[in-house]
Amino acid sequence: MQGVVKVNSALNMRSGPGSNYGVIGTLRNNDKVEIIKEVDGWYEIRFNGKVGSASKSYITIVN
């Protein structure tokens, strides 16, 4: 499943599904990500070869 980031500035990509996990990357508006699965309001995603988590509130699913 594919998604597109929708933010005003930037979205942190984290090492796990929650804001208490470390930041491993930064996503910008309109970045395209691969959604692997949903976990507690977060998506596990793949972006630029990295796997991490980002809040699903800022990612829109595209077909």
Results as ranks from 00 to 15, higher is better:
residue 34 E to F: 11
residue 45 I to L: 08
residue 43 Y to C: 03
residue 61 I to M: 09
residue 11 L to P: 04
residue 57 S to Q: 15
residue 62 V to P: 07
residue 32 K to R: 14
residue 22 G to Q: 14
residue 7 V to F: 05
residue 21 Y to L: 04
residue 57 S to K: 15
residue 59 I to T: 00
residue 13 M to V: 15
residue 35 I to F: 02
residue 38 E to K: 03
residue 53 S to Y: 15
residue 21 Y to V: 03
residue 10 A to Q: 14
residue 34 E to A: 08
residue 27 L to R: 00
residue 9 S to V: 13
residue 46 R to T: 08
residue 24 I to E: 04
residue 30 N to Y: 08
residue 47 F to S: 05
residue 63 N to L: 11
residue 51 V to L: 11
residue 57 S to G: 12
residue 38 E to Q: 07
residue 35 I to Y: 01
residue 31 D to H: 03
residue 24 I to V: 12
residue 24 I to D: 02
residue 50 K to I: 15
residue 52 G to F: 02
residue 44 E to L: 14
residue 50 K to N: 09
residue 43 Y to D: 00
residue 2 Q to N: 10
residue 34 E to T: 11
residue 36 I to F: 08
residue 35 I to W: 01
residue 28 R to I: 10
residue 53 S to N: 14
residue 49 G to S: 06
residue 13 M to G: 03
residue 30 N to R: 07
residue 60 T to S: 11
residue 61 I to C: 08
residue 5 V to I: 08
residue 11 L to K: 10
residue 27 L to Q: 01
residue 22 G to K: 13
residue 50 K to M: 14
residue 52 G to E: 02
residue 57 S to E: 15
residue 11 L to D: 03
residue 2 Q to V: 14
residue 7 V to T: 14
residue 5 V to L: 03
residue 17 P to M: 05
residue 57 S to C: 14
residue 49 G to K: 05
residue 25 G to E: 12
residue 11 L to R: 07
residue 60 T to F: 13
residue 20 N to K: 10
residue 58 Y to N: 12
residue 19 S to Y: 15
residue 56 K to H: 06
residue 16 G to S: 03
residue 18 G to W: 00
residue 1 M to F: 11
residue 7 V to W: 03
residue 11 L to M: 10
residue 60 T to P: 08
residue 47 F to R: 02
residue 61 I to Q: 07
residue 1 M to T: 12
residue 3 G to P: 01
residue 30 N to M: 10
residue 32 K to C: 13
residue 30 N to K: 08
residue 34 E to V: 11
residue 10 A to W: 14
residue 55 S to N: 15
residue 56 K to W: 02
residue 40 D to V: 04
residue 54 A to M: 07
residue 28 R to S: 11
residue 36 I to V: 09
residue 17 P to H: 05
residue 22 G to V: 12
residue 25 G to F: 04
residue 44 E to A: 04
residue 28 R to M: 12
residue 39 V to K: 08
residue 62 V to W: 06
residue 26 T to H: 10
residue 16 G to H: 02
residue 23 V to P: 06
residue 59 I to G: 00
residue 46 R to N: 10
residue 10 A to Y: 15
residue 41 G to H: 06
residue 20 N to F: 10
residue 38 E to R: 03
residue 50 K to L: 15
residue 17 P to D: 03
residue 4 V to S: 05
residue 10 A to H: 15
residue 5 V to P: 01
residue 62 V to L: 13
residue 41 G to K: 05
residue 7 V to K: 10
residue 33 V to Y: 03
residue 15 S to V: 07
residue 59 I to P: 04
residue 11 L to Q: 10
residue 45 I to R: 00
residue 24 I to P: 01
residue 8 N to V: 12
residue 37 K to L: 09
residue 56 K to S: 11
residue 41 G to V: 04
residue 17 P to Q: 04
residue 4 V to Y: 06
residue 54 A to N: 02
residue 35 I to D: 01
residue 18 G to C: 07
residue 46 R to L: 12
residue 24 I to F: 00
residue 59 I to Q: 01
residue 27 L to F: 00
residue 11 L to Y: 02
residue 50 K to D: 07
residue 44 E to H: 07
residue 28 R to N: 12
residue 55 S to E: 15
residue 16 G to N: 02
residue 19 S to L: 15
residue 3 G to D: 03
residue 45 I to Q: 00
residue 61 I to Y: 03
residue 27 L to T: 01
residue 49 G to Q: 06
residue 39 V to F: 11
residue 49 G to I: 03
residue 26 T to N: 06
residue 60 T to N: 11
residue 53 S to M: 15
residue 13 M to C: 09
residue 31 D to L: 04
residue 15 S to N: 09
residue 10 A to D: 12
residue 16 G to F: 02
residue 23 V to W: 06
residue 33 V to P: 01
residue 29 N to H: 10
residue 26 T to V: 14
residue 6 K to M: 09
residue 18 G to R: 00
residue 32 K to V: 15
residue 11 L to W: 00
residue 54 A to G: 03
residue 41 G to A: 06
residue 11 L to I: 15
residue 38 E to Y: 06
residue 60 T to H: 13
